[in-house]
Write a protein that binds this DNA or RNA. Sequence first.
RNA 1: UGGGGCGUAGCCAAGCGGUUAAGGCACUGGGUUUUGAUCCCAGCAUUCCCAGGUUCGAAUCCUGGCGCCCCAGCCA
Length: 562
Amino acid sequence: MNDESRAKAPSNFIRQIVDRDLAAGKNDGRVHTRFPPEPNGYLHVGHAKSICLNFGLAEDYGGKCNLRFDDTNPDKESVEYTESIQEDVHWLGFDWEDRLFFASDYFDQLYEYAEILIRDGKAYVDSLTAEQIREYRGTLSEPGRDSPYRDRPVEENLDLFRRMRAGEFAEGEHVLRAKIDMASPNINMRDPAIYRIKHKPHHRTDDKWCIYPMYDYTHCLSDAIEGVTHSLCTLEFEDHRALYDWFLEQLPVPSRPEQTEFARLNLDYTITSKRKLNELVTEGHVAGWDDPRMPTIIGMRRRGFTPAAIRDFCERIGMTKNDTRIDMAVLETCTREDLDRTAPRAMAVLNPLKVVIENYPEDESETLEAVNHPYDESQGRRQVPFGREIYIERDDFMEDPPKKFFRLGPGREVRLRYAYFITCTDVIKDDNGEVVELRCSYDPATRGGDAPDGRKVKGTIHWVSAEHAVPAEVRLYDRLFTVPKPEADKERDWKSFINPDACVVMDKALLEPALALAPAEKRYQFERLGYFCADRKDHAREHPVFNRIVTLRDSWAKANKG
RNA sequence: UGGGGCGUAGCCAAGCGGUUAAGGCACUGGGUUUUGAUCCCAGCAUUCCCAGGUUCGAAUCCUGGCGCCCCAGCCA
């Protein structure tokens, strides 16, 4: 991976906390984080923010970051997801070395801890139904009531809990609860469930267990077991911190991690909810988790976004507790900046219009030299074939152009990039009055693109040689939704805002020959159009397929809008 | 209505009692250019949710409002 030297991330409130802890000599000067996904879906940009935070922090402070799967719910989890998540984290440029962990690795220890809680009178087996537990819990403004089973003797609790583990009960029959405070204003402290019965095989422990620990109980203990110092999570867990601390205080844990919360990422014109992304996939609104319209890591990768751009993006958006939404332009800028530096240039015509250069000798062709990158000489040069018949972009011709249109029009002269000046001499139309072909003349003295007499042209357009061009499919991607906050509308279903034009297929596109040789996932700038990436699944020598990652900035289009 | 958070420009975000209130994105002008790209240069908050108060001095401290987000899974 081309990594360059990664600049140290700007400071933020979390780094200030780490600095303060270090200065106070906390944790023996260790900084240890973890990225803890549940393997119940694919990772998305929101996760990228967390990954960059956790791994980036460890990197910058000479610490460590674990990858730990929070796999406590076999109903939703699978190995498919554990594998894709590992691939995505690696692709983003981070490495957990030998620290790949699973919460399920700790099931034995977690069970022992639960027995300790029971013996200490701090947990009990409740036999209320789920429905009843909900009723007993109270509401936001009223306290809950104690379960009638709350004061079961320790021995009975122990016996019941062991029989739960042994599989003697059906799902829902009993649940192990922490005994805290049913009147707590913090609902999470009203005797939360810590173990529930699930007669389901687990993707790692198979059928060893039929009781599974809950998130709140598992997470803090897993952090403590791993020696995590700074447990970073999103804002919705802020209320859970009291519980996180409670378990750590009750149990003889080997270390004392501290939870800090930050705001999750909201990106305009897309969604970052695993549940909703899953819905898009299962209902067929997109072609899969890796659909280039998806804000999943795998989708963004397929679209062509680079790891460096995504990392840069995560740095630029900041790290605070503010509930924010980020303008898509930030991601686009990061992507353009990275690709402008790195992507070789090439010419492709998306919507071809034939041009015949009438004074160019028949049955002849030649080869012209083009640079692969305007300011990175090391990318070298290439030969581009040229001939009497070429194709240009339809948008680069106007029959009755305004004064400021610096492209082709009847009688106008433009430069063909790396080639010649041409002048449009005639416009050929079909029966419907549609322009089907242009007749032009060229100036042989302008070979390479400069006029010896010093005359200038305002415009330079791209082109491909008709004889040599390679047909291709080019997919133009755009934002997934038509509105910035598809989830915000109370009346309309968020799915009704799916952008029908988020993928426009140009199946008559023509490439300069060099492009057909591109390997999958190779990125280019198609001059004057944007950045494109050879599709990692569908691209082939015989049938090139390119995805548009992002357009070039286009001040002409902008000036003509509205 | 109980609890937990948040509020600095169109969007992010520094700021931690004394600064002309950083920086980025977006936007607007101008220059360079064989990509209407890139690059360069300039502009863009007399004011920090509001109102009081403390202070020689407040975005920063205090008090009271207002607005927004999260929590009532045997999900994470």
